[in-house]
Simulated scan of single mutants.
Amino acid sequence: MTGSQPLVVHITGARPNFPKAAPVIAALAEHPVRQLLVHTGQHYDERMSEVFFRQLGLPEPDVNLGVGSGPHGAQTAATIVGLEELFTAERPDLVVVYGDVNSTVAAALVASKMGIPLAHVEAGLRSFDMTMPEEINRLVTDRLSDLLLVTSPDAIAHLGNEGVHPDKIHLVGNPMIDTLLRHLDALDTAAVADSVGLDRTEPYLVATLHRPGNVDDPADVAELVRAVHAVADQVRVVIPLHPRGRGRLEQAGFMDHDNLLVIDPLGYVEFLGLVRGAAAVVTDSGGVQEETTVMGVPCLTLRPNTERPVTITHGTNQLITRASLPAAVADVLAAGPAEPGTTPVPPLWDGHAGPRIAAVLAASLGV
């Protein structure tokens, strides 16, 4: 590669970013550009980041800022300082950010203030819940972006309503689904079930719970514990427990149920292997709503809203409350698994979002 080739800098910082970035980086390698991969280190646990790089075939990060955990302000500020130094030294021709984490909005602020073009992968998603830090990150990042790469038609409508010029918006599909489809044959449900100590003859649920609305307030935590225990009265529940909120859940007696299996966070392939074999998933995560949609696994989202409504209209997802969770699980168990191929999948969630995104980025650079 020569120095005359434009430089594209990809910013990743947390576990959800990596499966989105991998197909874009791979596809962009087919174009005459230089690429620099930055890991801000927002997720610093090996199980939460480095294992993803290995499993997804991502190159080792060229730069790791080592920001680590902390309050939103401190984490975002440390990322801004590190990226400003990096962009001053390297002067990218284009910065690409993913999703809605603090690293994303930090990079958007730095690139915008330095006059560097910015592309946002997964633009336009809206929960309309301003109590979610991620919603603020989405709004700010989209406002500052020059290229808005959207995963679903509803995102186009949101951006249009916010006054974004149509020329900036590109419906490209979902690169995270590229990664899922690429690894689908490698998802070994039996192996991961054995490794975590599940009885494969019995149905099980997978739960992922870490959002502030569920695990920050003691009253919410107490209600969540009661609801999940009522679910565990019906079926085995496996929970790869996120570090966020773990202490509060433990103090509230979350682990005190014989049918609840709490495990450490899993790698990408292992986690999706576990999900693929589940009777259902209970989650407050964003990406899991999308992955279950494509795999046809019933998803019960424990939130009052979702920025991914396409997973409800074209998938297996439904919004539930803590109070309605036990009954919703009973209904899913009674209904049994859907016939393969009967669940609608959103448009362009076909495994080719990475090349579409790369083509838009390359065209913007004139290569």
Rank of each mutant, 00 (worst) to 15 (best):
R182S: 15
A186R: 15
E223Q: 13
R200W: 04
H210S: 00
K168M: 11
L187R: 12
D167A: 07
P175T: 10
A222M: 05
D220I: 00
N214K: 00
G197E: 11
D233N: 12
R226H: 12
P175E: 07
D188P: 01
V228H: 05
D185W: 09
D188Y: 03
D188N: 05
A222K: 05
L209M: 05
A190S: 07
S195D: 12
R211S: 00
R211D: 00
L198V: 14
A232W: 11
Q234W: 03
H165S: 15
D216W: 09
P175I: 03
V228A: 05
A207M: 09
A191R: 15
L184P: 10
V231S: 09
R226F: 10
T189S: 08
V225C: 04
G213L: 11
R200K: 08
V172Q: 11
T189A: 02
D188S: 04
L171R: 14
H183C: 03
I169K: 07
V228C: 09
D167V: 02
T208R: 01
I169G: 05
A230D: 12
H165E: 15
L224E: 05
D199M: 06
P218Y: 04
H183F: 01
V172C: 14
V172S: 13
L181P: 00
L187Y: 08
L180S: 00
E223C: 10
V231N: 08
R200T: 06
D194A: 12
A232Q: 13
V206L: 05
L187I: 06
D216Y: 09
V172H: 07
H183G: 01
V225Y: 02
D216H: 13
H210Q: 00
L224W: 02
A219L: 13
A219P: 13
L184W: 10
I169E: 04
D178F: 01
D178C: 02
L224F: 07
Y204I: 07
D188K: 03
V221K: 12
